[in-house]
Amino acid sequence: MASNKDSFGRTLFVVVGLCLICSVLVSTAAVLLKPIQQENKLLDKQKYILDAASLINTKEGNVTKKEILSKYEQYVEARLVDLKTGEFVEGDANVYDQRKASRDTARSSIPENDVASIKRVADKAVVYLVRNDEGKLTSVILPIHGYGLWSTMYAFLALDTDLNTVQGLVYYDQGETPGLGGEVENPKWKALWKGKELFDAQGNLAISVTKNPVVASSVHGVDALSGATLTSNGVQHSLDFWLGKEGFADFIAKARNGGLS
């Protein structure tokens, strides 16, 4: 006769009990770790903002948490911008989640000319104003994103105070092919952007990610990534959208007319 300990009911009880215990442990860990994850996510973003502003170099690998927090607090001011008006608006830009807002139909819209394949654009965006030790504005950083070959690519575009000359373009979240499209994070390719101008003398968007060596060597051109045409196109389309009317165009125009003072 089979022992009661080997009964189906006892076995089922043990299995269900273990599942419940594991579920409680996983749920508890998720709740306890969430604040840490959010803190690390914010720290990571601040690190790349500082990199775009040339205040740190993320590729050196020796940047401490203390250094990131200290420099960000000292030099960077995050501000919310209403993309429909180009005006600064009230709100805590440091906790505003632009990606989450873009998924909320009450706080976003479908762009009319979605060249960057972003699907929805949040009504508000964050811009980062960087100042030196004397408090003088030295750069303005715009968050941009757009679809490449395999993924949505997120970057920070750092500009001089003329809102035209590029200080840096730093991609911090992308899932493109390593060694090909993933080269958007290559320091050599990033260095090509410094000093390039986004707009021509008439104010038209002129920056071009191109395989044409003549154009690439001009003040309005950057070499396309070798073997990664669709990723390069994604970079171009991101710039086309975010520097256009449905992106930061109104903000840029007002900033040039004293909107940052």
Rank of each mutant, 00 (worst) to 15 (best):
G148I: 09
Q167C: 03
T161F: 07
T152Y: 14
E134C: 02
S139D: 13
A155L: 12
D133M: 12
D162M: 11
V170G: 02
N132L: 11
Y172S: 07
S139F: 04
Y171R: 01
D173V: 08
N132G: 07
N164E: 09
I141W: 00
L149W: 05
H145M: 14
V127E: 05
T138C: 08
T138H: 07
T161Q: 08
G168M: 03
H145E: 14
M153H: 09
T165I: 06
V130D: 11
G175N: 10
F156N: 08
A125F: 14
T152K: 15
G135V: 06
G146Q: 02
D162P: 07
S151N: 14
P143E: 10
A158H: 03
Y147Q: 02
L163C: 04
T161W: 01
Q167M: 13
H145Q: 12
A155F: 13
L157Q: 02
V140Y: 01
N132Y: 09
Q167Y: 06
D173E: 12
K124A: 07
A158P: 05
E134T: 04
T161Y: 05
L169Q: 00
L129Y: 03
D160L: 11
N132T: 02
L137D: 04
Y172H: 11
E134M: 09
Y172V: 09
L142Y: 08
Y128L: 12
D123H: 13
I141F: 00
H145S: 08
H145L: 15
Q167P: 01
P143Y: 02
